[in-house]
Design a binder for these strands. Sequence first.
DNA 1: ATTAGGTATCTTGTGATGCAAGATACCGTG
DNA 2: CACGGTATCTTGCATCACAAGATACCTAAT
Lengths: 108, 108
Amino acid sequence: MNIQFKKGVLEICVLSVLAHKDCYGYELVAEISKRIDISEGTIYPLLHRLKDEGHVTTYLQESAGGPPRKYYRLTESGRNEEHEQKEEWMRFAASVNALLLGMNHAAD
Amino acid sequence: MNIQFKKGVLEICVLSVLAHKDCYGYELVAEISKRIDISEGTIYPLLHRLKDEGHVTTYLQESAGGPPRKYYRLTESGRNEEHEQKEEWMRFAASVNALLLGMNHAAD
DNA sequence: ATTAGGTATCTTGTGATGCAAGATACCGTG
DNA sequence: CACGGTATCTTGCATCACAAGATACCTAAT
């Protein structure tokens, strides 16, 4: 799949999954990979960025067989961001679709 | 508008407009900007890449008041590319929408 | 105990590509 | 002849996804 399509989209995907439930990084990769191929080297820097920006908080939780998991939870700011970015994506996708379908002269 | 969303999408937008009619660069910027903000510094390198890859050919045509215009026309390879990239975009957009709407467990 | 393998997090370097800013050049008008 | 609009093109920068690998915890087999 075209890597470039993903630029900027993975962030809203992460926010959107976290809007449904708290997740740890590894779990997010698995969740999102059901639809869009994504690697771990992408998700961790992204999650740290989201934390730096105050959109998520984290808490540790032990796991059965393996190192402790770091769960990510949306903050209020994160929920706002999720909402805004989702709307922006919808507008953007609609614009691209309009262009690809040749509706760029009259319709709206 | 989120710059990152555009990565990789502008190429299919250009191909798609050219699938309707031959255009010169300046005209493409105007055409695409109706829906998606785009700058000239983006379109010219992109057009040169498309030419290098054999997806377009060019021809010059004089204009009333200004330098000659360089028109771009899709080649057969360009039409194939346009078709494939359009389908890939549609699949991608559908995947993202599914994720954002929380349909990532069962539905398909 | 030592090794191997699965789970989980994180870092580094590379590549693709959009943009701002500016250079170049043609043309008509004042 | 300078100016502004049209039109093309180049350079340097920023963003972000990825491959590859480092680290570390735990269980099970040797």
